[in-house]
Computed example of a mutant assay.
Amino acid sequence: MKKLISLSMLLLAFSFVFISCSRDDDEGSSSSNYIQVDNGSKLAVSSAAVMGFKASDASEENFYTITLINTAGTSTKMASLAIYFPYNQSMDGTYTLTSTSRKLDDWLSSYAETTGSAMQNYNDLTQGTCTVKRNSTDNFTVSFSFKTASGKTVNGEFSGKASVQESN
């Protein structure tokens, strides 16, 4: 059931990302906001979204997905970080695949490339870590690095405003 709820949140995040608009101003953005795939060129993050489910009691965990998007013409590249952390705690911290308290989900975290109507998704992480700091309600600092089962390596950084949607 937990995986079903998580997958639903991830799909909702994808739909939210594709209909959201990037900001016209550069307030809060930084030249270090990028996604890098297989040590290629750094792709500028054009928008960011954070979707979260807040745990209602200690029997649940908080679940959030942070999605960073690069859009150029008809091509979209997207890194999604699915994280779990304990009830009644801040999301600030470092997440790994092996952690029991601050976990980076190996299956729901992913990298996706979309060109036109064709999409290729890379998930099933074999290595990964990310660090998250929530600076304010809609401002985040994120750095990450992960490797998928197919060998794709993805890393990046983001510091700035994101579209946020949270539910209990």
Score class of each variant (00 low, 15 high):
S59P: 04
G93P: 05
N155Y: 10
L125K: 00
K42A: 07
F14T: 10
A79T: 03
K2S: 10
S101P: 04
Y34R: 08
F85P: 10
I66S: 03
Y84K: 05
E60I: 05
T98P: 02
F158H: 08
T126W: 07
T137L: 12
K152H: 04
R23L: 05
N123Q: 12
S163H: 10
N168P: 10
T141I: 05
L10P: 02
E27R: 09
V37P: 00
I83E: 00
S75F: 10
Y64W: 13
G151H: 09
T115Y: 05
C130N: 09
G52K: 15
L11V: 05
K42P: 01
D57K: 11
S15L: 08
E61K: 15
L104S: 00
S30F: 03
K103E: 12
V164K: 13
A82Y: 00
N39H: 08
K147T: 04
A44G: 03
S46I: 01
Y34Q: 07
S90Y: 02
Q89T: 11
T141C: 14
N135I: 13
E157S: 11
T114H: 08
D38L: 13
F16Y: 12
T98S: 11
G156V: 11
F85G: 08
K42R: 12
F63C: 15
F18C: 10
L11H: 15
Y84P: 11
Y34N: 01
N139E: 13
N123A: 08
S20G: 08
F85M: 07
K3Y: 09
A118Q: 06
R102N: 15
D124A: 03
N62C: 14
S145N: 07
